[in-house]
């Protein structure tokens, strides 16, 4: 089906995703776009620490080096 990681990421734009940083903090929101550095823009973002919502952002830019891993929800 979807071959490369790039194809997967293209397919997941516009969907709800969870981005986990190396620090263990999760950001949940709608993936609006990403670039070659894996910088990520999210909409309707919730910041989760240990399963607790600690912040909400309308939009959020996450710098790529913080280690993103995303998944469909």
């Amino acid at each position: 089906m979807s071959g490369s990681p790039t194809d997967f990421l293209k397919g997941v734009v516009g969907k709800r995703v969870i981005v986990r940083l190396t620090s263990g903090v999760d950001y949940r929101g709608i993936l609006s776009c990403l670039d070659g550095y894996m910088n990520i823009a999210l909409e309707q973002t919730e910041e989760h620490v240990n399963g607790i919502v600690t912040n909400r952002y309308g939009d959020a830019f996450i710098r790529g080096n913080n280690g993103g891993y995303r998944s469909r929800r």
Binding site: V13, G14, S32, C33, L34, D35, N39, I40, A41, E43, D59, F61, I62
Partner: peptide, 16 residues
């Protein structure tokens, strides 16, 4: 891409 809200095509657009 996602033309949903204000035409953000790459993350840096959000910053711009």
């Amino acid at each position: 891409m996602d033309p949903s809200s204000t035409g953000i095509q790459e993350p840096f657009d959000l910053i711009r």
